[in-house]
């Protein structure tokens, strides 16, 4: 069985974000970019399924500018087999990503697509669910455990009250939560090997998808700031401060 893993190139989670002073967006020039952390977890999960003999081939796909090829190479170095770059230079919304991924799914025929639950730049948390809807597939979102069996997958989901276990029929969509696994680092020999792994380039037109956004960003601004308060010297001072603030 084949697994498809969509990976997004995002600003590294350690970077301190700066909003452009003219309100037009976030400063992206000369900023460190990495694979979305939830997507690393998705790649790792696919590799573990392959190592367990349940999966034959792992195809990673990224939608984005030419540099997104680097993100694909990272996944190939971790252990994925093949990459597809759908080259789009403008910002692509989750709905558009889902439509492009549907095209990739129809061309590749995977039984399982593992995505991150959320991209840490747009914080949308939509793409997996949207892809599942467009394909008419089942979905197991926010997964902390995935057990594949014949024709179905049992997925443990992180939900507001604790955990929920669902059984979903294949073909299916899974989105990863933080506790699913601990992604591996690529070793140097594997990074070298990844350079020779196949990486195809496609365009949005190849899938007949209109990439025009539906949301117009009118403004991007800094959040309302919060100033550091005071240091109290001991518990007694803390308690009396909280009492005078009326919160305890």
């Amino acid at each position: 069985m084949k697994v498809l893993v969509p990976v997004k190139r995002v600003v590294d989670y350690n970077v301190k974000i700066r909003v452009k002073s003219d309100g037009s967006g976030v400063e992206l020039a000369n900023v460190k970019m990495s694979m979305n952390p939830f997507d690393e977890i998705a790649v790792e999960e696919a590799i573990r399924l392959k190592e367990a003999g349940k999966v034959e081939e792992i195809v990673v796909v990224s939608i984005g500018p030419a540099q997104a090829a680097e993100t694909i190479r990272t996944a190939l170095a971790m252990g994925a087999d093949r990459g597809i770059l759908v080259k789009v230079d403008d910002v692509v919304e989750p709905l558009t990503v889902a439509k492009l991924l549907k095209g990739v799914v129809e061309a590749e025929g995977p039984q399982l697509v593992i995505l991150g639950k959320q991209a840490i730049d747009d914080d949308a948390n939509q793409t997996g669910q949207m892809l599942s809807a467009l394909l008419g597939w089942s979905q197991g979102t926010f997964a902390s455990k995935v057990e594949l069996s014949d024709g179905s997958a049992q997925v443990t989901r992180e939900v507001d009250g604790g955990l929920q276990v669902v059984d979903i029929k294949l073909p299916a969509i899974v989105t990863t939560d933080l506790r699913l696994n601990q992604p591996r680092y690529a070793s140097l020999p594997n990074i070298m090997k990844a350079k020779k792994k196949p990486l195809d380039e496609k365009s949005a037109a190849d899938y007949g998808v209109d990439v025009a956004p539906r949301l117009k960003v009118l403004k991007t601004e800094e959040p309302g700031g919060r100033k550091a308060g005071v240091k109290v010297k001991d518990v007694a001072e803390l308690v009396s401060s909280l009492k005078s603030a009326g919160v305890i």
Binding site: V11, K16, I17, V19, V26, I120, D121, D122, D123, V217, L218, K219, T220, E221, E222, P223
Partner: peptide, 9 residues
């Protein structure tokens, strides 16, 4: 967006 480090309209 970006963990609340920017607010989009």
């Amino acid at each position: 967006i970006y963990a609340g480090n920017a607010i989009q309209t």
